[in-house]
């Protein structure tokens, strides 16, 4: 191992170490600050109660529900579209239009969230308001549609990489066995790309869960239990953005802190599920 190689190796190791310790540091920081919160009698109420500051209730359960519902619906809407798009690009569309579609989706990943939010406020909110006549048009459905649009490009690009990584030999073998393009896609290529598809899906899931601006601008932010997609709702991230100016000692501030912990827990759980699924699909630990 020459000097240059050793240097590169050291540099990369340092980068990894910094990344890992930052993540661990955040967790540690939150746990240390959470100890008095968890020890206090109000912890269960904060986590499972409703939000009515004027009445002295500072529970974040409505926000947890809103985050879960919004993320799940946006992801559920985006996943089939993304998989279809990726299949078009890799297998089904003529080469010229496939390249064109691929480029467009690459461009879409570069659009900042706030632009989606802005367009949503001025274009989608009035449409939803007029169509359903069930409130101001700022609701989970509006946020879901825009959020799905935002996470789709990420998922598509991941899926395209995954589909392209399936060895050509599989395709040829399937074709030789008499499979048409759709059958090849469904029975050979998608199963072969499973680990990449899982990774892309979970990354998009994490993005949807962590996104703040779209929910803040479009979901309405009413801190109530979301009973339907046409209701105004407040996600965990939007709640943090709205209440961040509170005093350190106030119950409002404690609540956003708890929001942070819940988000961290869900994201970590997602990452772990992804890890397990990838291990299983690649036939054991690497």
């Amino acid at each position: 191992m020459n000097v240059r190689e050793r240097f590169t190796r050291g540099l990369l190791r340092a980068a990894t170490l910094i990344c890992a310790s930052a993540t661990a540091g955040i967790l540690l920081f939150m746990l240390v600050l959470a100890v008095p919160l968890i020890a206090s009698t109000g912890f269960r109420q904060l986590l499972f109660g409703n939000w009515a500051p004027l009445a002295g209730h500072y529970g974040i359960l409505p926000m947890i529900a809103a985050s879960a519902l919004l993320t799940a619906t946006a992801w559920g809407l985006s996943f089939p579209i993304s998989l279809g798009c990726a299949a078009l690009i890799c297998e089904l569309a003529p080469r010229r239009s496939a390249i064109w579609l691929h480029r467009m989706i690459q461009m879409m990943t570069g659009i900042p969230t706030v632009v989606y939010g802005f367009v949503g406020v001025f274009l989608l909110v009035p449409v939803i308001r007029e169509t359903f006549a069930a409130g101001s048009g700022r609701c989970l459905l509006t946020a879901t549609l825009v959020l799905a649009l935002m996470i789709t490009p990420t998922m598509v690009l991941f899926f395209v990489d995954a589909l392209e990584a399936v060895p050509t030999g599989y395709r040829l073998a399937a074709a030789a066995a008499g499979a048409d393009p759709i059958e090849r896609l469904l029975w050979v290529i998608i199963p072969g790309a499973r680990s990449g598809i899982v990774a892309g899906s979970l990354l998009a899931f994490g993005r949807a869960l962590g996104d703040t601006l779209i929910a803040l601008m479009l979901a309405g932010n009413a801190a109530q239990w979301p009973e339907g997609l046409l209701q105004s709702a407040r996600t965990l991230t939007a709640h943090i953005a709205l209440v961040i100016a509170a005093d350190f000692e106030s119950p409002e501030f404690r609540s956003i802190f708890l929001c942070g912990i819940v988000l961290y827990a869900i994201t970590s759980a997602t990452a772990m599920v992804a890890w397990r699924l990838r291990q299983r699909s690649s036939g054991g630990p690497r």
């Binding site: 001025f122 101001s136 009413a222 209701q231």
Partner: peptide, 28 residues
């Protein structure tokens, strides 16, 4: 007079966002 505010009310994060919301909604 420190009265009740409906839980179902939409919440916007600034005076500017309030202006955008009310200016764009005839029933606001």
């Amino acid at each position: 007079s420190k009265g009740e505010v409906s839980q179902a009310a939409d919440v916007v994060p600034s005076n500017g966002a309030m202006k955008t919301a009310v200016a764009g909604d005839p029933a606001a």
